[in-house]
């Protein structure tokens, strides 16, 4: 069994600070996935500690704003880390970046772990839950999602049915 924390708390904190800037989710939410350590290790394994360090430096140099990262390698690592947080999937890197990093592994996408998929942040952007996990309960799909207007339920339209309308040209 691998240790739960193979890296120092300090570097995980740096990774989380950068991840918050990349994803728009705060450290509490990121910890809340239970994936922080695994993702940090995955990034280190995939592109190596020095490249992760250069990415963190580039982000710092940009004042913490990922839009300000100019180096394409650092930027593609930023894309990959954001992609991982949102979907649980480490993606293919851009082909030139893969070459530039001299990676000794195939440039293939993979789901970091089964739980990484279910902890993807993308579902939370629209107040959803991952398909196949964290079910919200029987019938909840009938409720309006946050920000949506109430509409009549089936069977409630006893009156005021619109007459025949045409769809227009």
């Amino acid at each position: 069994m691998t240790p739960k924390t193979s890296t120092s708390a300090r570097s995980l904190d740096d990774f989380l600070t950068a991840s918050a800037a990349l994803t728009g989710f705060g450290a509490f939410d990121l910890h809340g996935t239970g994936m922080a350590g695994l993702y940090h290790r995955t990034a280190l394994e995939q592109v190596g500690g020095p490249a992760v360090g250069r990415f963190l430096d580039a982000l710092d140099a940009a004042g913490g704003d990922p839009d300000g990262i100019t180096d394409e390698t650092a930027r593609d690592i930023a894309r990959a880390i954001a992609h991982m947080w949102y979907l649980g999937v480490w993606p293919q890197l851009a082909a030139p970046v893969h070459t530039a990093l001299g990676r000794e592994r195939a440039n293939t996408a993979f789901t970091v772990s089964p739980e990484a998929y279910t902890e993807g942040l993308v579902w939370r952007t629209f107040d959803g839950h991952p398909a196949g996990a964290k079910p919200p309960g029987f019938g909840t799909w009938a409720d309006p999602p946050p920000g949506a207007p109430a509409v009549p339920r089936a069977g409630e339209r006893t009156s005021g049915l619109p007459g025949p309308r045409e769809a227009g040209p």
Binding site: H31, G32, G34, K134, P136, G137, F138
Partner: peptide, 21 residues
């Protein structure tokens, strides 16, 4: 009917706490 989803909501809110130092 509404109580079961309310309980499942507790799951989401509590696991996030437990995973935070």
């Amino acid at each position: 009917h509404a109580a079961v989803p309310a309980m499942l909501r507790l799951r989401e809110l509590s696991v996030q706490l437990y995973r935070n130092p």
